[in-house]
Design a binder for these strands. Structure first.
Lengths: 143, 143
DNA sequence: GTTCCTGCAAAAGCTTTGCAGAAGA
DNA sequence: TCTTCTGCAAAGCTTTTGCAGGAAC
């Protein structure tokens, strides 16, 4: 069975991008960790395995993967950029207590609007913020 | 007739926030320029009138206005934060050619999803990116 | 008279850039 | 062999912080 990773590697080949060891590591990390990591989180994690890995390479690779259409950029918060492999369109919810990001289904078709008639829409992002279920329960149990 | 500015000033009074000269200037600018400026754009513009104004005050004021619920924070792009007085909920479209940000109507009710059952949702943002009508026409006329 | 706001300078934090050496095709 | 990638160090940008003086109430 072909995994997300395999599919993405094929995509890289198709687009004539080099399959360097570091790129594959980063891609693998993204496929195994669908928790919308920041560049720094990827760096800290992979450095354990690959001590020579630099942040520059993380940024470079994320840019390349984004331009190739394999990675989504998430700017739900102003002071951090997060990354996500693109599986299917969904919205992102960020909990202000624990900082976790959750995916949720969004019907992007219903967002069509005549206000943007004549516009070419390439990216659609839906960002929600608030408090997640788990944190809400924790707050309740404290009172 | 009461303007947006008047309404917002009343809001500040109600929340016991000080109506300093600089705060009122920044609020006035936001009411008269509904083009989602960055902190720097506000700074550059207002400095002509108020040379002593500092960027620190711009940031401070924007934070205060945001916490008071009068200003919306827009993170459609990773390297810049934009600000918007809150009139009614709408989506934001950013043109990748000219950089302009357009508002468009969004029915936020249809975005409700059972995936977030039990979550407390406080903010909802819809960000689209692409090319605006005007830039599309310019591109066509070049060919 | 208090409290809060302002502005300067410095620091912090994330991201980008330039360039020489290394690795991929 | 040629092209592209990598990593270091430095720079760039936006935003935050600490603190003394000043303004609002």
């Amino acid at each position: 069975m072909e995994t997300y990773y395999d599919i993405l590697v094929d995509e890289l080949k198709n687009k004539n991008l080099r399959l360097s060891a570091h790129r594959l590591k980063i891609l693998q990390y993204l496929c195994e960790n669908l928790n919308h990591p920041t560049a720094d989180q990827i760096y800290v994690h992979l450095q354990k395995d690959v001590p020579t890995l630099s942040k520059t390479t993380i940024y470079n690779t994320l840019h390349v993967l984004h331009e190739a259409g394999l990675v989504r950029v998430i700017n739900i918060e102003d002071n951090e950029t997060r990354y996500d492999i693109i599986i299917e369109s969904h919205g992102h919810f960020k909990c202000e207590k624990c900082g976790s990001i959750f995916n949720f289904k969004v019907d992007f078709n219903v967002l069509e609007t005549k206000d943007l008639a004549g516009f070419k829409v390439k990216d659609k992002d839906v960002y929600f913020k608030g408090v997640c279920k788990k944190c809400l329960l924790n707050i309740e149990s404290e009172n």
